[in-house]
Design a protein around this nucleic acid. Structure first.
Length: 384
DNA sequence: CCCTGCGGGGATG
DNA sequence: CATCCCCGCAGGG
């Protein structure tokens, strides 16, 4: 409300240290600052032990949103909401899209949905999907805390994400709905036939490929609806697909490599299991109704109760000396992880502004302002 | 279907 | 005591 849009980026850094007003408190304090001269714009990608004070009017803050995939964690304290990061879903084959981007899907928040998600195939190459869990906080997932106090909503994050950014919530939703729309026409059983029909008619591979939206397609009609609905939460990063440079920013050499893969030796099973998913070298021809069937391969994880996180690669946190092993810094910066999907004009990124100044490696944001220049930005961000 | 928040409860330190 | 996690439930889109 007091801020200009254009200073959102620099502001963060600023806000963090603004006269100690912002940092002199801890989410656990009995008393939090009562008078705050300025509230922060909602931060879409908070990272690295930051604190923010939002207006209690801020929709995103009210909903405790984050573009990181955060799930509710019970801390047995109803006054402070705690959420922990689920990491990011990557392609087990470490494939790249035609424009060189890596696959960084948003882990489903719901446990069940997440398990189901992992049984699906990479939208790009049909390979198996793998959940790269977050261990940015002493071997544990990064945690975010929210506390509603009077006129403000206090936010604090602990830990630095040690993985690429997943799709934003809107991007994930958009992708889902597109896919659904694509398959909606055909009642499952007929799908195959249908596709073949189309194929024969058009003489070309049906648009039914692995995952359409991957390579640039118009966003679903309802996308706009989504956006406008949440016009309060417009956004940046997602204007990906359409922006050439977005792709370059993505992972590539920098991000998805080595450390990433060395990470989960024990996932489910032997990597062989992936074989079930056909993994064409050339995604473009992969087409056809692929029955991705590496199902059983995954949920096999014997979930010993108490074992932590059955989904992710390994049992415990620090356990495998991982934290030291994969320092984000090793990846060189600039991993935007903009999803390979096209982004509707105006970009979905619901949340707001900024780019995080913290050079922790992954968290380099694509500077919203760069993507959306002035006008657009303002349109998306009605004054509040 | 899935997201979100709540809260009981177990495991571990 | 603390923190971590898992699970089911309920409300809502």
């Amino acid at each position: 409300m007091l801020k200009g849009a254009d200073d959102s980026v620099m502001e963060q850094e600023d806000s963090a240290s603004r006269r100690g007003e912002m940092t002199s408190w801890d989410i656990n304090d009995i008393k939090l600052p009562q008078h705050v001269s300025q509230t922060d714009w909602f931060q879409e990608w908070p990272d690295s032990y930051v604190k923010h004070i939002y207006s209690s009017e801020d929709k995103n803050a009210q909903r405790h949103h984050s573009s990181w995939a955060m799930r509710n964690t019970n801390n047995h304290n109803s006054r402070i909401l705690k959420k922990s990061c689920l990491g990011v879903v990557v392609c087990g084959n470490n494939c790249s899209t035609l424009d060189g981007k890596k696959i960084y899907l948003r882990p489903a928040i719901c446990d069940k949905a997440r398990q189901k998600q992992q049984r699906k195939c990479c939208p790009n190459c049909n390979g198996p999907l793998r959940l790269l869990s977050c261990r940015g906080h002493g071997g544990y997932p990064v945690t975010n805390f929210w506390r509603h106090e009077g006129q403000f909503i206090f936010f604090q994050s602990k830990g630095a994400h040690d993985h690429p950014r997943p799709e934003t919530k809107l991007e994930a939703e958009a992708r889902r709905s597109i896919q659904k729309a694509k398959t909606a026409f055909t009642p499952s059983s007929l799908r195959q036939k249908r596709i073949q029909e189309i194929e024969s008619l058009t003489g070309a591979a049906p648009t039914q490929e692995p995952l359409p939206l991957l390579l640039s397609n118009p966003p679903p009609a309802n996308f706009r609806g989504h956006l406008s609905k949440s016009s309060q939460e417009p956004a940046p990063s997602s204007c990906a697909g359409q922006f050439p440079h977005a792709g370059t920013a993505v992972a590539d050499g920098a991000c998805g490599e080595a450390p990433t893969w060395s990470r989960s030796p024990s996932l489910g099973r032997s990597p062989r299991a992936e074989g079930l998913c056909r993994v064409p070298a050339a995604p473009s021809t992969a087409a056809s109704p692929r029955p991705c069937s590496h199902r059983s391969a995954q949920h096999v994880l014997p979930v010993a109760k108490g074992g932590r996180d059955p989904f992710s690669s390994d049992g415990g946190p620090v356990g495998r000396g991982s934290s030291g092993a994969r320092s984000p810094l090793a990846h060189g910066g600039g991993c935007l992880s903009l999803p390979p999907y096209p982004a509707p004009q105006g970009g979905p990124c619901p949340m707001a502004s900024g780019a995080q100044p913290h050079p922790q490696g992954w968290a380099r944001a694509p500077s919203l302002p760069q993507l959306l220049n002035g006008d657009m930005f303002f349109n998306l961000y009605p004054l509040r």
